[in-house]
Design a protein around this nucleic acid. Structure first.
Length: 238
DNA sequence: GCCAACGTTGGC
DNA sequence: GCCAACGTTGGC
């Protein structure tokens, strides 16, 4: 996310158009995304991008469709202006929202969007602080509303406005997330990296962790082994 | 502020 | 469909 970055707080009472059911308050969270100015015209899906995966719609890796049980969502806890809008939205900002719930808008990357579309209500995710003094996992959130249209793509005043997206065929989605708890301690990126490197060399639960293998993705999938291993770190001294 | 990694754009 | 140029992410 933007990772995040983003934050703008707008809370428009109304809008939300039908889509947003009751949960979100639009607060914005963004996450990493970028400013959206993309264009892309026609063909819409231009698939593939680089590396691995499928950038756009499909997300099969081969044929086996890996099931992801958990997620990691990045957001920026420190102020940073993007098109004049402050992207700050740390876990403390989420806690202050009504119902401690916010919509994760502003994601403008196909892989990240597709992962959000795969999210199921009730699944838990790590809230990751990026682009800040101390990057790392700060808390746990859960998905409380499955993917629906991200209204900010149509808002010219929004920093993630996407002029290429048509209302009849929206390009971008978002989910609603709710604060669950802080992790027992902050789990720094640097610490995770040490485990990743060790596991990559000798085998271990974090050997393929997206935070390192696809570091720029603002919404990342986690398999159960990754999620549980990281949770086990809460009780270590570090 | 630097810059590596990588996604996107768009000409050809 | 290739690929160079360009833009973004995000750690350091």
């Amino acid at each position: 996310m933007s990772s995040p970055r983003r934050k703008r707080s707008r809370m428009e009472p109304m809008d939300a158009k039908k889509d947003s059911a009751e949960t979100s308050q639009h607060v914005k969270v963004p996450v990493s995304k970028k400013p959206a100015k993309s264009k892309v015209k026609g063909p819409a899906a231009r698939r593939k991008s680089s590396t691995k995966g499928s950038a756009n719609e499909d997300d099969y890796e081969g044929a086996k469709k890996v099931e992801y049980s958990n997620w990691l969502m990045k957001s920026e806890p420190e102020s940073r202006l993007e098109n004049g809008v402050d992207m700050k939205f740390g876990i403390e900002d989420l806690k202050m929202q009504p119902k401690q719930t916010a919509c994760w808008d502003g994601v403008r990357n196909y892989q990240a969007r597709n992962f959000m579309r795969d999210m199921k209500v009730g699944q838990e995710a790590f809230f990751y602080h990026s682009n800040c003094k101390e990057p790392g996992i700060a808390g746990i959130i859960k998905i409380v509303k499955a993917a629906y249209v991200d209204h900010t793509q149509f808002d010219k005043k929004d920093s993630h406005y996407d002029p290429s997206s048509q209302e009849e065929n929206p390009k971008w989605s978002m989910v609603d997330v709710q604060f669950v708890r802080m992790t027992k301690r902050f789990i720094p990126l640097a610490e995770l990296k040490v485990y990743y490197q060790e596991h990559a060399a000798t085998g271990g639960p974090l050997k393929n962790m997206a935070l390192f293998t696809r570091s720029r993705l603002s919404v990342q999938p986690l398999i159960k082994e990754e999620f549980e291993f990281i949770l086990s770190l809460e009780d270590k001294d570090s």
